[in-house]
Each structure stands twice: as structure tokens, then as C-alpha cells.
Amino acid sequence: MYDFTEIFCSVDDFFKKFEPIYWQFLKQEKKRQRIRQATLSLSEIVTISICYKASQMHNFKAFFQLLCQYESRLFKELPCYKNILTLINQHQLAIHALHYALNQHKEDSYLWIDSTPLPVCKNKRIPKEHHALDDIASRGKSSMGWFYGCKLHLLMNHQGEIVNSDISNGHIADIRKVEKLVDGLSARVYGDRGYISQALKETLKEQGIDLITYPRKNMKVMLLPFSDEFHLRQRKRIETLIGLLKEKYHLVTGKHRSIAGFLSGVFSSLCAYQLCQKNKPQIHVVNSLAYP
């Protein structure tokens, strides 16, 4: 269960420093568009979006009605349902910035990498037109089959915390996002067979990254050190993290009607996991020096 006040305090601590920079950036990017301050503060808007993702409710309208009925005392003045949706979508960049800030200082010597599809519609609707997300969605194939949408790429440490993330089109291969995810890091990264690439492995080696995967069936089997073998077997923990994002924090939904709405929903789910998930899927790290 989450606490409105606790989440708001965490969000507000960040925006006290970031908000002036954020408004200055918007004025520079949208010179011809008038930017009006809402009745709610930026911290309150982001808090509502995160709390919805942590509420176990699948309908934002029903969630907002309950918020107005039972928790309105926590806010100075709540707008109508249509306006709160507009505000959340308008400030998806602020939610993204909060997610990025929550990832900081969570580096580790051992990291796990994986990706998951973010379908924006059911498969039977793929042949039909889907104008809302045409600019970012595309057909892709995962281990579960074909889908139409995007991909979320995640990097996790042994404490179950998200170290880095990125969103791509559905057809983008997993190995094309590895360098961006591990940029500036130095660690041993464990992934599935989708990350096998000798050229990528050599490039990352120069940056201080050791990418470790199991070989394919048609490849020569090489014995791994005990620690690497153990950490590879723990790769299922990042799949547990993805399962929590989808089942508990509603990462995947087909109700988005704009790119801004889609992005705000994804980053709100990630922030909700980072702020509200107490028992994260942790991994016991085995020191490579202790086992030859």
C-alpha cells in the first residue's frame, strides 16, 4: 500500500530544485506557446499520476473520482477529470526527469539487462489503423510472438533497483540499446541470448563493461567461472521486476490516445515501482575472487 503524503514528499524534494530549470526549459522550447501555471503544483500533478499507477486500479477516471471524494483535503484545488489528464500529459517530461533522478547513484559491479514489449493494441487490431502512436510504434517480435508497439529496455542492479532504462520502437534489436544503457558505467552485465554479439562484446570491453551471456545451441560451449554461472542463473530476477511493473504498476495498457499520454504512463509506472515497491527482487552477489 502507498501513502500520498510519503510519495508527495519524495517527489516535492526533487522538484524544489528541478522546477525552476524545468519552466525555463519549457519557455525556451515553446516560445510561441503560452505556458500557464495550473491550480496544482508540478509536484501534485506528478504525485497523482504515480499514485494512480500504484493504486491497483485500471480506470483513471474511477481513481480520480475516489481521489476527489476521499483525499481532496490533501490538495488546494483539484481540476476536473479532463484537465487533470491534460496536465499529466503536458508534464510527461517532468515525470521522465524524476525517473532519471531516481536512477542516480545506483551503480553496481554486477548488473542485469533485459527488454520487454509494450504493445499499444491487441494483435487482432494490428492490421487496422492506429494513428495515435504511429510515430513511435512499430511491429516487433518477442519470445511471446508478434506485437505492435514499443520496447522498454531495463538495467537492474543486485538490489532490484532500476539503474537505467530506455524506450525504442518495437522492431529495434536489444543489442542496439546496450551501449546507451551502460554508458558511463563499469560492471559485469548479464543478459539472455538475445544480447550475443562478438563485436558488441569487444566494444564494451574497451569501455570497462564485460557482457556475459549463455551461448546458443550451435555455438561452442565455454566453461564460465562459478560466479558468472551463478549470476546468469539469477537473470530471472529482472523478469520478476518486469512482471511487477506490468501486473502491479500497470506498465502496459492500450488506452493511450497520444504519445505524451503513452510516455507519461510508462514513466509513472517506473517511478511508482522505484518509490512504492518495498520488497524488490534482490540477488545475492557471489564474489568472483572467492570462487575460481
Rank of each mutant, 00 (worst) to 15 (best):
4 F>R: 15
6 E>I: 07
6 E>F: 11
9 C>R: 09
19 E>S: 15
29 E>S: 07
31 K>V: 08
31 K>S: 15
40 L>T: 13
40 L>A: 08
42 L>G: 08
45 I>C: 14
50 I>S: 13
52 Y>M: 07
57 M>K: 14
59 N>H: 11
62 A>W: 14
64 F>T: 07
70 Y>A: 14
75 F>Q: 13
78 L>S: 06
78 L>C: 06
81 Y>F: 09
81 Y>Q: 10
86 T>Y: 05
87 L>C: 10
93 L>F: 11
94 A>I: 05
96 H>G: 13
100 Y>P: 07
102 L>W: 06
112 W>N: 01
113 I>Y: 00
114 D>C: 03
119 P>Y: 02
122 K>D: 08
124 K>G: 09
126 I>T: 10
134 D>K: 11
137 A>T: 05
140 G>K: 11
146 W>S: 10
147 F>W: 03
150 C>F: 02
152 L>W: 00
161 E>C: 15
161 E>S: 07
162 I>N: 07
166 D>K: 02
167 I>V: 12
168 S>D: 10
170 G>W: 12
172 I>K: 03
179 E>I: 06
186 S>P: 05
192 D>R: 01
196 I>E: 00
199 A>N: 07
202 E>N: 14
202 E>L: 12
205 K>L: 12
207 Q>R: 09
207 Q>C: 04
209 I>L: 07
215 P>D: 05
216 R>A: 02
220 K>T: 13
222 M>Q: 13
223 L>D: 12
227 S>L: 01
228 D>W: 00
231 H>S: 03
233 R>W: 01
234 Q>R: 09
237 R>K: 14
241 L>C: 11
248 K>F: 01
250 H>D: 10
251 L>G: 03
254 G>N: 10
258 S>V: 13
261 G>W: 02
262 F>V: 05
267 F>A: 02
274 Q>A: 08
275 L>Q: 04
276 C>L: 03
278 K>C: 11
284 H>M: 10
285 V>L: 06
285 V>Q: 03
285 V>C: 04
288 S>A: 08
